[in-house]
Amino acid sequence: MRRRFSAGRWGLALGLGFLWAPILLLAAYAFSADRIPFQWGGFSLRWFEALAANDRMLEAAWLSLRVAAGAATLAVLLGGMAGWALARFGPFRGRALFGALAGAPLVLPEVVTGLSLLLLFVAGQAALEAGLGWRVERGAVTVLLAHATLGLAYAAVLVQARLATLDRSLEEAAADLGAGPFTVFRTVTLPLIAPALAAGWLLAFTLSLDDVVLASFVSGPAGTTLPMLVFSALRVGVTPEVNALGVAFLALAGLAALLGWWALRRAALLTGEGRVEAPGRGD
């Protein structure tokens, strides 16, 4: 092939350097003994120990993990249904509104989603108290509902996109061979969309674990999530503990990325697209 304009290689290196430099510095200095963040005071694990002994932080982390897991599971179930409907049901009644509502959390600014959900929850609380005499507090559950709504939007997009590229003849073949609709779904469709479901779950999980704006709006006194705690710490100034926490996040994200990559690769192999090429070919 002829030479092509290729400023891209240098641009990519520069961009990746910019993206990764602060993260790598953070990771390196998390192991520094110095009290001042980003000052080298010899290798030490003291900030990880401090983090492990910080009960408020651990409690918030445990709450955040539970909320994220619950929200991601709800998001995949509901988002899967929504994506399925959008990809397979043709022009059903109210499809335009359904699609717009499912996509809205993707494009609405967090402050708008957060404030509007909080106002709804306040109205809901008032209605429950007036109607049934129930007093409900906002907290982990309202955060979970907000995060599931955000995650639903992402899961729906992923599942819809996956179904759109799926070869329907596979399902038809199974049906021709006598499989009932449910068997076709369980043995053919579900394995094929499983990577999209897994990716949706992971995305919803990390979005929930990372969110501070929605949580700050909709949570109550008993529902301080980890990002809310970190945000209030950062407002005062950065501490070495936050850096140690960043490293923990990095390790978790790396693991999730490996899992996601593996899922995508498996999907590519299953459907035969993007076969693994022998190294050294191409170019």
Binding site: L16, P22, L26, F38, D210, P227, L234, V238, L250
Partner: peptide
Amino acid sequence: LVMLPFWTGFLPRVGAWIGL
């Protein structure tokens, strides 16, 4: 490599900029 920083925790990344 491009996407992973997005998943390394938004607040720790902003915190890194404060420290830097």
